[in-house]
Write a protein that binds this DNA or RNA. Sequence first.
DNA 1: CCATTACCCTATCGACTTAATAGAGTTTAC
DNA 2: GTAAACTCTATTAAGTCGATAGGGTAATGG
Lengths: 136, 136
Amino acid sequence: MLSKKTKYGLKALAYLASKKDRQPVQIAEIAKHENISQKFLESILLSLRKTGLLGSKKGKGGGYYLIKKPSEVLMTDVMRILEGPIAMVPCVSLNFYEKCDDCPDEGACSVHKLMLQVRDSALEVYRNNTLKDLIS
Amino acid sequence: MLSKKTKYGLKALAYLASKKDRQPVQIAEIAKHENISQKFLESILLSLRKTGLLGSKKGKGGGYYLIKKPSEVLMTDVMRILEGPIAMVPCVSLNFYEKCDDCPDEGACSVHKLMLQVRDSALEVYRNNTLKDLIS
DNA sequence: CCATTACCCTATCGACTTAATAGAGTTTAC
DNA sequence: GTAAACTCTATTAAGTCGATAGGGTAATGG
C-alpha cells in the first residue's frame, strides 16, 4: 500500500510542477490546494529538499520550488525518496539489498524469482515517467 | 513491502506444488522445511483452504494438499488472497475499489495515473505466472 | 534593525497492523 | 477409543503511520 507520505509528496511535487514559473510556493498554499495536513506536508517537503529534489527560500515571499525541470525528475528517484525500496522484498532490491534471514538459497527461492519480475516491471514504469508526465 | 504472511504462503504453496503426488502434507513438515513458525503457518494455510486453493484432510495421515494443478493456479488469485489488493491505492484497485477521501477528481489526479500503470504492470506479471512457474 | 514571515526541528500520541504464541476444541484414521 | 492432525479463538508485544503541538531559527522587507 502506498503511504500517505508518498501520496502527498507526489501531489505536492505535481502541484509545484504545474506552476509555470519557478517562484517559491508556500507550504500553506500547497496544503490547502491538495487537502493535506500542513504540518505533515512540512516534514515531507523537508525530506524532498534534503535529498535535492526541492529548494527552499526562507522569509517573506519564501516557500518551496523545484530545482530541476519537471521532465528531468524521474519517478524512480521520487519513489525511492518518498516510499523507500521499489522492490517488495529486500533480497531483490537494487538500492536497499538485504539477505532474507529465513532463506538459505536465493537462487532456489520461489518468492525471489517472482518478486524480481514484479520489481522490474515497476521499475520500467517509474523509469518511463517523469514529473512532467504526471501533470499532462 | 511484502508481508510475511504472503511470503510464507507462497513458499508453502511452492513446496506443495513441488511434491509429485498430491498426498496431504502435514503443517509441521512444511513449517520445518521452509523455516516458518508452525502456528503462524497454520493460520495462513487455513485461509488458503477457505478460499479454495487448498484442501485439507484431518486425522492421522492428514494435512494440506493442492486442489488444482500447479499450472492452473494463477498468481493473481494467490496474491489477492494472501496480500490483498494488487494496486497500491484503493482508487485504482479492480477488486477492492474505494474512492480516495482527499481526492476530488480521480481523472485529474496525478497519483492516480501513475498508480494505474504500476497496477497494470504488476497484474501482467502475476497473470503470466502460475504456481508451476514458481518451482521450475 | 526589527518585526514578520516562513522554514526547520523535536517530541509525542493514539490507532492500527503485523507476526507470533498459547491453548483449547474437533475430526478422522486405524 | 485414542492418538494424530487440523481448526478456531484470543492475546500480546512490537512496530509503523498519520497527525499534532510547540517552539526555534533564519531571512526578507520596510
